[in-house]
Amino acid sequence: MTTKDILKIVANLVVIYLVGGAILSYVHANTSPIRYQNNIIAEEKALKLLIPDADKIEKMGDWEIHEKHGKYWKATKGEEVIGYVVLSFGKGYSSYIKTLIAVDKDFKVMKIEILDHKETPGLGDEILVPAWKDQFVGKDFDHIKLVKGETKEYIQAITGVTISSRAVTDDAVKNGVKFLIDTVKGGGAAHGGSH
């Protein structure tokens, strides 16, 4: 390899990195605001789907889980509080699974929705299957627990996707509901007692 070869290789790589980097940052800069907006729209749509009965879903505050930014909302119908929604994260196999959990006023799960995850393609997506997510409906805090094998009482793990399904169940949902109980219920009880 002559000096000329070496120079050519270096020039090749420098040019490719510079041009490629410039194109990628241009595309990223132009698409990221749209993607950000899309996420907000998706979040609003998901909230409506979680508690279709609610007239109004208003944000109550923020919280933190796995150093991620979670949020929680209060759903009302007329004057009455009919439930709460919390945005939570579960540490999965290769990503943090972004999950929305809706609970009724007794803190039983009404519905959950997975907003985003980067688990193993083709396998991890099993957590998106409605039949699996529907297992959470009606479960209270003590019954949000992943078990292997047939169960009606708890949440059944998906074969081959144990880590992802555990991340949703024992991490995202359980911690999310616990947070709501600790935060909202405490406040709610004190509020109710004062009347």
Binding site: N12, L13, I16, Y17, G20, I23, L24, V27, H28, T31, I34, R35, N38, A42
Partner: peptide, 22 residues
């Protein structure tokens, strides 16, 4: 260099699809 070009284009398609058809 082929690999760099391929991954560059895949990243672009990825970002654009995320924005255009979420």
């Amino acid at each position: 260099i082929f690999m760099l070009v391929i991954s560059g284009w895949v990243t672009i398609v990825n970002l654009v699809m995320d924005a255009a058809v979420p």
